[in-house]
Design a protein around this nucleic acid. Structure first.
Lengths: 231, 231
DNA sequence: CCTTGTGAAGCTGTTCACAGCC
DNA sequence: GGCTGTGAACAGCTTCACAAGG
């Protein structure tokens, strides 16, 4: 029994580090590519370069899942692929509900990248009565009031928020009330949700602002009037 | 390249830590909201809760920029906002070029969240001749061949790739050849670019896969047959 | 030989707790 | 008194380098 004192009621024991979990889908994609190319076996070198990480990191990451390689040889592509797929829950289908069928919402509904990953947008919801009942990407848009029914019927536990910032918190509350326990949030707001609900945020303008910061630094060594004052 | 004296043994020649840079836009947004609400002064507590981080982290982050607060009082909203805006290069306008005017590309062109952040999509480019010449979000779509001219004319240094995965590397090469030095990549591939080019990646399906992993764990705590082996 | 798997070292980021200043 | 700014402790992640084992 590994009962550790949790210092200050902190994190429970977590098998696989977060940083590793975030890379597993990358490895999975790389393995799928190798598999499509007919490659049966690969080294950590091969796989890591396909995934854009360094080999030591890849091996460390895989070591958290188990010993799925063969020393002196490498990894069997299909076998490793299955192990990672199982670890990240991709042996099952995940139905997600998307709230907010504006420009971004429509683009996400039509996005083809989800489908081969065991994830599909199964329902669309919008607060605008003008959009309710219309068909987008082959799905009929439901009203917010129908959210609980939609979630229950299709066994949905993941929601995507693609609404304007003002609506996002209300939508999050509605999703949580309907039983959703994971949210991917595209709205530029900090959502307040219960502890048992996971939220991941994708903030498009922040990504660009980070790039702009680095651009400014590149350009700034010659132009920037601000001085780094040294004493 | 400005080399700062390391004021203290710790964080060295690299002024502001990456993790801090990634949060500055968040603080900026929170400050703008406070400012809009007519708040003139705020504590690290106020600001950090608006930005969804803890107060110590906020103060530490701000300390990398300078001493912009007043002990015993807090921060002057407008002043701090200006300082952060300056730090992340938001006192200037950034024109970006978006390549790939499919569903996602069109959604991004129409996205309103960039505009108040000093960033705007100034040009659209697509490889499909059927799209070239059409108007999207008030902009005429240019051909790939015109990329160098477009970039040069508008002084663009940031590009967005919203093409299918297959095209992304070629587009990246073209952007780099045209003079772009920062890329925001939405295509699910690892881009190969020169060292002086910054790439940030937004991978929609990976975000969902990470959520699915955690969902599986929540559901699996009663089912999971994996045992913790003891030595 | 070969490449994996992994302790250990090193680094980055976070949190604590309190000195410093208003 | 109250809040900022920051060294120091801590936690987590990455990288190294080598033992383990085909």
């Amino acid at each position: 029994m590994t009962v550790l004192r949790t210092p200050r009621g902190g994190a429970s024991d977590r098998g696989v580090p977060d940083a590793t979990v975030a890379r597993l889908p990358l490895y999975l994609r790389a393995l799928t590519e190798l598999s499509d190319q007919g490659v049966a076996t690969c080294s950590s070198q091969d796989l890591s370069s396909a995934a854009g990480v360094n080999p030591a990191k890849l091996r460390k990451d895989l070591s958290y899942l188990g010993s799925y390689g063969t020393r002196g040889v490498g990894y069997e592509v299909e076998y490793l692929r299955y192990q990672i797929a199982r670890e990240i829950g991709q042996t099952q289908e995940w139905a997600v509900v998307l709230v907010g069928v504006g420009n971004l919402g429509q683009a996400l509904s039509n996005y083809q990248g989800f489908t081969p990953r065991g994830i599909h947008v199964a329902a669309l919801v919008d607060a605008d009565p003008a959009r309710v009942g219309t068909t987008v990407a082959g799905l009929t848009v439901s009203a917010m009031a129908d959210l609980p029914a939609v979630v229950a019927e299709r066994g949905i536990s993941i929601g995507i928020i693609a609404t304007p910032a003002e609506a996002a918190q209300d939508v999050a509350d509605a999703l949580v009330a309907a039983g959703v326990t994971s949210i991917l949030n595209f709205a530029p707001v900090v959502l307040d949700v219960p502890d048992n609900v996971d939220v991941r945020k994708v903030d498009l303008s922040i990504e660009l602002q980070i790039l702009a910061y680095h651009e400014q630094r590149k350009a700034g060594s010659s132009l920037d009037p601000v001085l780094e004052v040294q004493v």
